[in-house]
Design a binder for these strands. Structure first.
Lengths: 194, 194
DNA sequence: CTCTGTTGCTTCGAAGTCGAAGCACTACCG
DNA sequence: CGGTAGTGCTTCGACTTCGAAGCAACAGAG
């Protein structure tokens, strides 16, 4: 044991100022809370997990069809995990899986009418939660700034090499599927244009 | 199938403008990517999961000791999951669990010297990753704005009632409805700011 | 054409995660 | 005191998640 009077944490030479660490920790905590609430909402309203919802919305945003890889890339998820979830969604009749005519080894995932209907049924509630928890305490200026910052950060991360080199070979996810995920406007193509 | 030309997603009446949705989706994606990278880093450098790291840093930031509930609340994590992780950390000699003299049913978790040393050993690398991925593409102004926004958002969420009123001690006839999240508001574990 | 390397997806085993139920202790009320 | 409600933590069972290994299909060189 140790009789402590000062901080136990010893930040090294890289020491960012407290503001930086504070922003980071607060960001992570807020997002954690938001994710948790969203999860509850989706489960209650449509019996979907957050990942399943993301899969369905990604498909819908991509005009209904994507390969497994495109899907996994957009959702930031392991391939095997995606296979598992796709199995559940297929069993529930929300998507279908079929061969890709252009590449026989790929699996083409297609959202069904039922899946589309489900997404459109629970989307308003989802948006309501996001609105209530995230958007409400933000001004227009905040929103603009946040969107701007996170877009830059995300692009920066996407561009970063996987660090410490992959154990074998790494797929250069640089220019292959250009924004297929349409993450920035997953639901944005709508008539909501103001 | 369906020959689509327009968007498949139909945002309801609550339609936020595309900018709002875009900011939300981008935020979630960026954080996802960051979490993933951080996870890799912690695993490689200290053989810790993100949750374990959060537990240790929460303890360190709280002067070394916290109850399980305070810990779970600070980490946004299920109680049972925390019990599991605490078991692992204890077996690894990074923390110890003992009775709380003030409340016999509570478990007081204490970080060990070894745990503290580990945190201080991997913290610089952790910070480096955050710096490289998150902080790098941000200006001082961005940082200030982000910290400000997320603090407001987090406090807003913490203040929000869990939607489906939790069985607080005020219910004379508790039907015990399916409660969602922990309503506890133990604001004990702060962040490691400074 | 065939050989070899690469890519896309799934299967498999191990580990992590959660909510519900259960146990132990505290607080309140008569 | 004794009884009941409330709180703190752990156990339990079911599900999810991931990485490694495996299988099938493309791609390039010879």
């Amino acid at each position: 044991m140790r009789e402590v009077t000062g901080p136990l944490l010893d930040i090294g030479d890289e020491a960012p100022n407290p503001q930086q660490l504070g922003a980071y920790f607060t960001l992570m905590e807020a997002v954690s809370l938001l994710q948790h609430q969203v999860e509850q909402q989706l489960r209650a309203e449509g019996d979907l997990s957050s990942v399943q919802f993301q899969i369905l919305t990604s498909l819908a945003a991509a005009n209904g069809r994507l390969t497994m890889t495109q899907l996994a890339d957009g959702v930031v998820y392991s391939r095997s995990g995606l296979t598992y979830q796709a199995g559940l969604l297929e069993r529930a009749g929300l998507i279908t899986r079929g061969p890709n005519p252009e590449d026989e080894r790929a699996t083409l995932v297609t959202i069904s009418e039922k899946g589309l209907a489900l997404v459109n049924r629970i989307l308003p509630g989802h948006i309501k939660v996001v609105r209530r928890l995230l958007l409400e305490p933000m001004s227009d200026d905040d929103l603009h700034h946040l969107g701007d910052i996170m877009t830059r950060v995300r692009d920066h991360m996407r561009a970063q090499p996987p660090r410490s080199a992959a154990p074998r070979k790494r797929s250069p996810r640089s220019d292959s599927p250009p924004r297929a995920t349409a993450t920035t406007d997953t639901a944005g193509g709508g008539e909501a244009s103001e």
